[in-house]
Amino acid sequence: MEVLTPSIEQAQRTLCDVATGDIIVGTVFTPRSGQMPARMKSVHEVSQFLEDLTGRDYAVVSRKNIHHIDYSSLVTWIRDTVGDSDLATVVDELISDGRAFGMLSGEVKEVLSDRVRQCERVLGPSLTEEGLE
């Protein structure tokens, strides 16, 4: 499912940093070492945080961290805090098939990244350069 092209106002909202109290928190799992919170304030940061990895990446030789975010919380956060209901709907549909977190991580990352690029195109270089905070 494609996300509708946003309006300028919507694009600005989607690219904005949220207020400190409205951040979304993910978890970095370092297998066999510990868990750490990862605090993100924009869709862009979430898109960078998520990784496109497979189960094989967590095998004995690779020692990768797992960057986890709760998808249900993410959908709620995008819709209610960021204010991008179109994007929230697309992510919600994507995760609705019940696949495991890691099997969806790359796809969710791609959707978020696409949305960020889409918004940047709508705003154009002059608007994004002004800063949206």
Partner: peptide
């Protein structure tokens, strides 16, 4: 014959774990 397994715990895990 490195096992590609998440069950690489603890004896079975690889050298240089600090690299993470």
């Amino acid at each position: 014959d490195l096992k590609t397994t998440a069950m690489s715990v603890p004896m079975g895990s690889s050298q240089g774990v600090a690299a993470v």
